[in-house]
Write a protein that binds this DNA or RNA. Structure first.
Lengths: 189, 189
DNA sequence: ACCTGAACACCGTTCAAGT
DNA sequence: ACCTGAACACCGTTCAAGT
């Protein structure tokens, strides 16, 4: 009981830490936000954060998992949508964490823990896209390639400023090109 | 005369700085290489670097321009090649500076001078690809979209580890999809 | 188990001073 | 014009000590 109580408290505390860190990371960027600053916002000593997280990068992973689980709660709604709509949805979702996505990519080579999170996330997204493509009747041998292309396009659109028209042209072109590879002609992916 | 002499000396010195910085950046990464370390390798005081460059990011830009001009000297050879071969060539070229490319993308939001260099580089690459597509007879209205897609694919392949087969599948699929949009059917882009 | 004060070993950068 | 010694204002992180 007492043990359980403590676990709950720790989780609540971590939630507060990650919420504050998330807010500051999104407002100012990961690099521009110091551990001191986060600690000050929480009214604790800077080194207190190190009781909960081994490093600033691990705190970032906590924040990322938090954002991810929030996104996953909104996900079920898009299950049946066509690929183009799914990509547009993912783009809108990630757009709000643009800075965070850039940070993850920028730290891949320096932080193994960020690298691990990133790879796992990519694997998850790509599996989902493959499933969507298969369900839409795309030739099984092409699914993996198309899924990778889809994620590259989402990442590209996310990383580089672009107009709504450009974005639509790219998604439209991709959906058409992917759709033309259907085993059963006539339907659209 | 004396003035000219000095200009030459400054250029030679900058070349040496950038060569050393480039080596250390590629060996250890940008972030893991301190200004102190570069200065030590050159046998100068750390703050000497600030007489030549306003910041570490500006030194990076110097290094990037240096690598770029080296690449440009190797470029003429690929003028007439098909798009797929051009993309493969660019990939091989950038692969050797993978870490540097990741650094640039990671610092876009923090450094205006890096952002400016990146945008200009992208504009240059995209213009070149558009020219190649137009020459190959691709419908003019699609060229911009396809060029953007091409650069996104190159960046994606560069940022994420992949096998030679995966890479070939993606480039092959893209070339085929782009080629099917030719104004004159029969030729290949 | 949780938190702190104080310190460590850096970092990029600045500035006044030299030649 | 070019370079230095010394310092500034940080940074992420550690550690011994408290409760």
């Amino acid at each position: 009981m007492a043990k359980n109580k403590r676990d709950v408290d720790a989780k609540v505390k971590k939630a507060a830490l990650e919420e504050t860190a998330a807010r500051l990371f999104m407002e100012q960027g990961f690099e521009a936000t110091s551990m001191q600053q986060i600690a000050r916002a929480l009214d604790v000593a800077p080194n207190t954060l190190y009781w909960y997280y081994a490093s600033k990068d691990e705190l970032l992973v906590g924040v990322l998992n938090r954002l991810l689980s929030q996104t996953l709660q909104r996900l079920p709604a898009i299950g049946g949508l066509p690929l183009k709509a799914q990509m547009a949805w993912l783009l809108d979702e990630l757009e709000q964490s643009r800075e965070m996505v850039a940070t993850v990519h920028g730290r891949l080579d320096q932080s193994p823990v960020i690298r691990a999170w990133h790879d796992q996330f990519h694997h998850f997204v790509e599996s989902s896209v493959i499933l969507t493509l298969k369900t839409a009747g795309v030739d099984a041998s092409r699914c993996a390639t198309l899924a990778t292309v889809a994620t590259f396009l989402v990442e590209g659109l996310l990383a580089h400023p672009h107009s709504a028209d450009q974005r639509n042209d790219i998604l439209e072109w991709f959906a058409a090109s992917a759709g033309s590879q259907l085993t059963l002609p006539g339907s659209t992916a």
